[in-house]
């Protein structure tokens, strides 16, 4: 496992043998809590650190493999994290478990009315808004520039609102009545595909995850997403928002780990109908498309885009994000007595 390709610079990784991978040194760290207290001062309170876990089936779970990778970041505000944090490193079986959970959730999620899904997405926006400062701090801690972080959180909340209002408009935008020449009534309606695998872009770490996952689930798909390895903590904070919103467990599942490990597994998994992979590595993109062919997967791969793209109301969201993960079902019926 050692020596695997690394693409992110702010990530430190540890393999099972505990070897620290390169690329982690020199990041600033800090926080309001002095960790080496002066002996004469009153003994400082010892903080309770958060254990970061992946979000699968509405629960926070460790990797079944017991593997982890490490991230560092500068603490901002009331951040209790130690300088180095262990984050689960999703394994093959974690992907399998998450896909199973997403698969089991898909029928009831798709069966909900679009209005209901819209309500749930809107509730998510409310929860995000209420935790916006926390999200912003987390982004900064994860390496996002402070100015960008504020914009990113705002855009993320607005994106949730956008897709909340999209759920019950999709049909009106893409469905058709087909004026066939004959005594038949025909129509074509959009339907969710099933389980969609999402490899979220490295950056922006929060907006990228929302922008890729929400258009997938608004139409009734369920998602298994791999969060940016640059800042998995913000993704997990987002999952806490999910957990306290009205989203049923299993609809959005978020793994943490490495794209070069997770993306090929998703691409090969036959229960994953579509995949939306944002990968900086062109070869990995090709690999995902190639592996997906074994199950005729709807595989969409993308090279990284800049923040402006993601923030843009025309580019970063829209029906064009929803359509690739819809099937068209055409129904014919005779018109007669």
């Amino acid at each position: 496992m050692a020596g695997e390709k690394k693409t992110a610079t702010s990530v430190t990784g540890r393999d099972d043998d505990g070897t620290t991978l390169p690329g982690s040194a020199g990041l600033p760290r800090g926080g309001p809590i002095a960790r080496h207290a002066d002996s004469e001062a009153p003994a400082p309170r010892v903080t309770v650190n958060k254990a970061y876990k992946m979000y699968v089936g509405g629960a926070f779970v460790r990797s079944e493999s017991g593997r982890y990778f490490q991230v560092r970041g500068s603490a901002v505000g009331h951040d209790t994290d130690p300088p180095t944090v262990n984050v689960p490193r999703a394994s093959r079986k974690d992907v399998r478990d998450a896909v199973l959970v997403a698969h089991n959730a898909k029928v009831s999620w798709a069966a909900r009315t679009p209005f209901n899904r819209g309500q749930i997405l809107y509730r998510l926006a409310e929860v995000l808004e209420s935790r916006s400062s926390e999200l912003e701090a987390s982004l900064v801690r994860g390496g996002t520039d402070a100015d960008d972080a504020a914009a990113e959180v705002d855009a993320s909340i607005d994106r949730a609102v956008f897709y909340a209002g999209m759920a019950d408009k999709v049909s009106a935008l893409v469905a058709t009545h087909n004026p066939v020449s004959g005594p038949h009534f025909g129509f074509s309606i959009p339907e969710p595909m099933g389980v969609i695998g999402v490899i979220a872009p490295e950056k922006p770490t929060l907006l990228g995850l929302l922008s890729t996952v929400l258009p997938v689930v608004t139409t009734g798909n369920t998602a298994v997403a791999l969060a940016s390895e640059l800042d998995p903590r913000t993704a997990i904070l987002f999952c806490e928002c999910l957990a306290t919103s009205d989203f049923p467990g299993g609809v959005i599942n978020v793994l943490t780990g490495h794209p070069f490990e997770v993306a090929p597994i998703m691409a090969k998994h036959r229960e994953v109908t579509g995949i939306d992979a944002w990968l900086s590595d062109a070869e990995l993109r090709t690999q995902v498309e190639r592996l997906g062919a074994d199950s005729v997967k709807r595989a969409k791969t993308h090279a990284p885009r800049d923040l402006e793209f993601w923030l843009g109301e025309r580019q970063g969201q829209g029906i064009g994000w929803v359509e690739p993960f819809l099937e068209t079902k055409t129904v014919w019926h005779p018109v007669g007595l």
């Binding site: 005594p183 038949h184 005779p334 018109v335 007669g336 007595l337």
Partner: peptide, 8 residues
């Protein structure tokens, strides 16, 4: 009876 199919 399925009218359209009978006519067809």
């Amino acid at each position: 009876v399925n009218a359209v199919a009978v006519e067809e």
